[in-house]
């Protein structure tokens, strides 16, 4: 291949070369399939990022629809209706509760996942960033557990500043509380992969999304969660907990959850 580095190829594709550089590059392109292949890969990469980096409201709405339908079509107990099946299911559920009860309900009547997942959304002022009215409005709803009302405001905050790790982090938690687990994981993984102070908190909440299944009952303050009985999800939750070092704000909660999962 002719002696062009990647940055030169990128500058060609982005129309940043001089006329002479361009002419020479295009001449080499005609006779150098490796160079042509590298240019083609860059063009594909650029097109893909242009298409997929912006948040896609249509995909988000579709995911929400699919998640609802998944519950209906892939969760057998919810679809059973006959009396015999209901009795059988109740008996089985009772056995599971007895078997898992030791770690499902660790402190009185409080649900473990609910307790560990509880958090207050801090205002932007206390994080030392610029005051942002969208985040402050979202925090008011978030801290009253009105996650469905906090979500649209957090969406707007992220749209206004897509690099705001604070907004993405709390949107992830709000999505988790409103059962949009796939979206929650995506946001929280973004935060974990970044370099913000909240990355280990994000890892903890990702672990929670795998550790907890909604138990389907409605309590006084909304739907609650239970530790999952699914071995694969528990293993994934443990993998995420292992990413959290000692001494972070969530380390003690991570240890508690790890002990329960094991």
């Amino acid at each position: 291949m002719a002696a062009y580095d990647k940055e030169f190829i990128i500058r060609y594709a982005d129309n940043e070369l001089s006329e002479e550089e361009r002419r020479q590059f295009e001449a080499d392109l005609l006779t150098d399939p490796t160079l042509a292949g590298e240019l083609s890969l860059y063009l594909e990469l650029r097109r893909t990022l242009e298409q997929r980096l912006p948040r896609d409201a249509g995909a988000d709405a579709l995911r929400s629809t699919l998640e609802d339908l998944n519950k209906e079509y892939f969760t057998p107990p919810a679809r059973r209706s006959s009396r015999v099946r209901w009795i059988a299911w109740s008996a089985a559920a009772a056995c599971i509760v007895v078997a898992l009860g030791i770690y499902l309900l660790p402190s009185g009547n409080e649900d473990l996942i609910d307790r560990l997942g509880r958090t207050e959304m801090v205002g932007t002022e206390s994080r030392g960033a610029n005051t942002d009215s969208l985040l402050q409005q979202a925090a008011a709803f978030f801290n009253q557990q009105q996650f469905d009302k906090a979500l649209p405001l957090l969406d707007k905050a992220v749209a206004a500043d897509s690099s705001s790790q604070l907004a993405i982090f709390y949107r992830g938690i709000a999505e988790w509380h409103t059962a949009s687990v796939a979206l929650a994981r995506r946001d929280l993984i973004d935060v974990y992969n970044g370099e913000s102070l909240m990355r280990y908190e994000a890892a903890f909440y990702i672990a929670l999304t795998y550790a907890g299944d909604r138990n389907g009952t409605v309590t006084g303050d909304g739907k609650s969660w239970k530790v999952t009985a699914d071995a694969k999800n528990r293993a994934t939750a443990l993998e995420w907990l292992d990413k959290i070092p000692a001494g972070t704000p969530v380390s003690s909660r991570a240890n508690e959850l790890r002990d329960k999962l094991k």
């Binding site: 990647k6 940055e7 990128i10 890969l41 860059y42 990469l45």
Partner: peptide, 9 residues
């Protein structure tokens, strides 16, 4: 931008 793209490539 070119540097970051080159790293990504």
């Amino acid at each position: 931008k070119s540097e970051c793209m080159a790293t990504l490539l």
